[in-house]
Computed example of a mutant assay.
Amino acid sequence: MERRSFLRAAVTGGAAVAFGFSVTREAIAYPAQTGPSPYGPLLAADANGLRLPEGFTSRIIARTGSEVASTGHVWHGAPDGGACFADGEGWIYVSNSELGAGTGGVSAVRFDSRGEITDSYPVLSGTTDNCSGGATPWNTWLSCEETDRGYVFETDPWGGEAVRRDAMGRFKHEAAAADPDRRVVYLTEDEPDGNFYRFVPTTWEDMSEGALQVLTESGGALAWADVPDPTGALTRTRHQVPEAKSFDGGEGAYYRNGTCFFTTKGDNRVWAYDAAANALQVAYDDDLTADAPLTGVDNITGAPAGDLYVAEDGGNMEICLITPEDVVAPFLQVEGQSESELCGVAFDPSGQRLYFSSQRGPSGNSSDGITYEVSGPFRS
């Protein structure tokens, strides 16, 4: 029986499908099923148009085309993927700009220990369709171009020089997730027949040289194979290895405790790649979940408690969480912005503030992006 049919039968038959996989402290059974949120139901929308659980509050930290606080820096259009970095007693939030034709890039907002904005500035400019990316253990931000034969740029959240990393391949990049245990970086590709890649640097913490590899499947067995030409000059990278496993529209990626979680928008799935066992499971699939709350899967991040937070591109403009107990539920909803998408989900170092953006805001235009902060009693 094909795996998707097997999982559907298990769900409709009322049985839990246990794959014996651990996210953090507890084993979970895939695929996730609809259930109550650990934070309770969403309340009526607040003054910023956000429906949040009891005890949580929101603020807007940046708007496209407007100065960030009193920093003098004007926030970019189409804010997308983001991450937080510890900065002494405070932290920095970086945000991609998914604007095209050399008008994209990355900006940063710096906070002090109280969460007050102290600075904002550009980190990268002159690039195209910077969609998602990933933080590295050595505190750089890998910003990925979501365009045909796009590049990965390694940027400095403190505003130092950004470097194009050609060795990481040229394809329609989406997200990156660093795996310090195997010393590789996983990469997703936003194509209907996209691949799941890993970059194996010659020297860890140096992205200038290394091998680009693609996940393959033959006879049900998974393996990694080198991409012969990472530049994709004559043949696109996803078409160079016949056994490469295809994924329908790769989106966000997040690594934790031996597992790389990544999303695919074409089939609305969250995948879990168990790197130690070299095994792949479906952690969430809206077709296999009764009354599925999560649709339009996109950016993904994790909280200290082991919860995964998945932002919606479309859907009903929610960020949903998937708990270690394998429950999926809405965490927040943005009202009045149905033509936008949610992205850039990232926690501050304390795990008590969640950042995200509505890329096109109420108007549905990239010039109307809004970046938010949500504070509250996140469980640890």
Rank of each mutant, 00 (worst) to 15 (best):
5 S>R: 14
9 A>L: 14
11 V>I: 00
17 V>H: 15
17 V>C: 13
21 F>G: 01
21 F>W: 04
22 S>D: 10
24 T>Q: 13
25 R>E: 12
29 A>Y: 00
31 P>R: 03
46 D>G: 08
46 D>R: 06
50 L>Q: 04
52 L>Y: 06
55 G>P: 14
55 G>D: 10
56 F>Y: 09
64 T>F: 10
64 T>E: 13
64 T>P: 03
71 T>K: 10
73 H>V: 02
74 V>N: 05
76 H>T: 13
78 A>H: 13
78 A>W: 05
80 D>Y: 07
84 C>E: 01
85 F>Q: 03
86 A>G: 08
91 W>I: 02
91 W>M: 08
92 I>V: 11
93 Y>D: 04
98 E>Y: 07
98 E>D: 13
98 E>Q: 04
99 L>M: 14
107 S>G: 15
108 A>N: 10
109 V>F: 06
110 R>C: 08
111 F>R: 08
113 S>V: 11
113 S>H: 07
114 R>L: 10
118 T>D: 01
119 D>T: 02
125 S>I: 12
129 D>I: 14
129 D>M: 14
132 S>D: 15
132 S>I: 00
134 G>P: 03
136 T>V: 13
137 P>R: 12
139 N>L: 11
142 L>N: 04
142 L>G: 04
148 D>T: 05
150 G>S: 05
151 Y>C: 13
151 Y>A: 12
159 G>W: 02
161 E>A: 15
163 V>R: 15
165 R>P: 02
168 M>E: 14
174 E>F: 03
178 A>K: 03
181 D>M: 11
182 R>Q: 14
184 V>W: 05
185 V>G: 00
187 L>I: 15
190 D>P: 13
193 D>I: 08
196 F>Y: 15
198 R>W: 10
205 E>C: 06
205 E>P: 01
206 D>F: 06
207 M>W: 15
208 S>L: 06
209 E>A: 15
210 G>P: 04
210 G>V: 03
213 Q>W: 00
213 Q>S: 05
215 L>G: 01
219 G>N: 07
222 L>C: 04
232 G>K: 00
235 T>M: 07
239 H>C: 01
246 S>Y: 12
248 D>N: 15
252 G>H: 12
255 Y>H: 15
256 R>C: 07
264 T>K: 03
266 G>E: 11
266 G>H: 11
269 R>E: 08
272 A>E: 05
278 N>Q: 14
287 D>R: 15
288 L>R: 05
288 L>E: 15
295 T>G: 07
301 T>P: 07
302 G>S: 11
305 A>V: 01
308 L>N: 09
309 Y>T: 05
309 Y>R: 01
314 G>V: 09
317 M>P: 01
319 I>G: 04
323 T>P: 03
325 E>T: 14
329 A>K: 04
330 P>H: 01
334 V>F: 06
335 E>P: 00
340 S>P: 09
343 C>T: 15
343 C>E: 12
344 G>E: 09
347 F>A: 06
348 D>V: 05
349 P>L: 04
350 S>N: 05
352 Q>E: 14
353 R>N: 05
357 S>D: 12
358 S>L: 08
359 Q>R: 11
359 Q>Y: 01
362 P>F: 01
365 N>C: 07
367 S>Y: 10
368 D>W: 02
376 G>V: 05
377 P>A: 03
379 R>H: 09
380 S>Y: 09
380 S>W: 10
